[in-house]
């Protein structure tokens, strides 16, 4: 016998379900008066330094249907490549209840070490049993030294992690949960 390793194991995930908005963005679904405002409406104050960008996208299921009940959280460095302070850099976006589109108004992150500028995403919804991690990089940046992009075995999937530059500080980033063009999801 040996001494027991008396560590704990992470609590198992369960789906966020169809009513995740009640808990995370209650004002967005009309439950008003409990919280002054929903958390994570904007990742940075208006006067934060850096280039202002807008990222628009949609999350699609394996049948090509837009998810209209999805909740996305993002976490990113500021323009100088550092994180924080506090909750700065974090944003929470429910997709549009009719169209499924999400919109992120933020500042373009700086590079962190060897990592090219990117935004981390965490995606939860009904039918998603454990939050999906992925990343958004930006078309036009130098990704040649990025350790994560370079370790992808299937380099033909690299593009699923790169937001398309649609001009004037706007980007398009669609996420496909399954099937053709399936987004690369991460386990970091």
């Amino acid at each position: 016998m040996v001494q027991p390793l008396d560590y704990l194991e992470e609590s198992p995930s369960q789906t966020a379900g169809p009513y995740v908005h009640i808990g995370c963005t209650p004002n967005f679904v009309g439950i008003e008066g409990i919280y002054d405002q929903d958390l994570g409406l904007a990742p940075f104050p208006d006067d934060a330094p850096g280039e202002r960008i807008t990222v628009t996208g949609t999350v699609y299921d394996g049948t090509g249907t837009a998810l209209r009940d999805v909740l996305i959280e993002t976490w990113q460095a500021g323009a100088d490549g550092t994180f924080g302070p506090g909750a700065q850099g974090w944003c929470r976006m429910p997709s549009d209840l009719e169209t499924g589109e999400f919109v992120l108004n933020t500042v373009k992150p700086g590079a962190t070490g060897k990592q090219a500028p990117h935004i981390s995403l965490w995606i939860v919804a009904r039918g998603i049993n454990i939050g999906l991690q992925t990343r958004m990089y930006f078309e036009g940046d130098d990704h040649s030294a990025d350790p994560l992009l370079n370790r992808l075995e299937h380099q033909n999937r690299r593009g699923t992690l790169i937001a398309r530059d649609t001009g004037n500080g706007t980007y398009r980033f669609d996420i496909r949960l399954q099937g053709e063009g399936e987004t690369v999801f991460l386990d970091l």
Binding site: F83, A87, G113, Q115, H118, L148, L188
Partner: peptide, 27 residues
């Protein structure tokens, strides 16, 4: 509901970086 909403390809595993080691803190 998980049938059409589940990725079919393997997750890409790696070591957590600054992006995963840091996170929002709320007062």
């Amino acid at each position: 509901s998980s049938v059409p909403r589940s990725p079919s390809k393997a997750l890409i595993s790696g070591v957590a970086t600054a992006s995963e080691q840091t996170g929002p803190m709320f007062g």
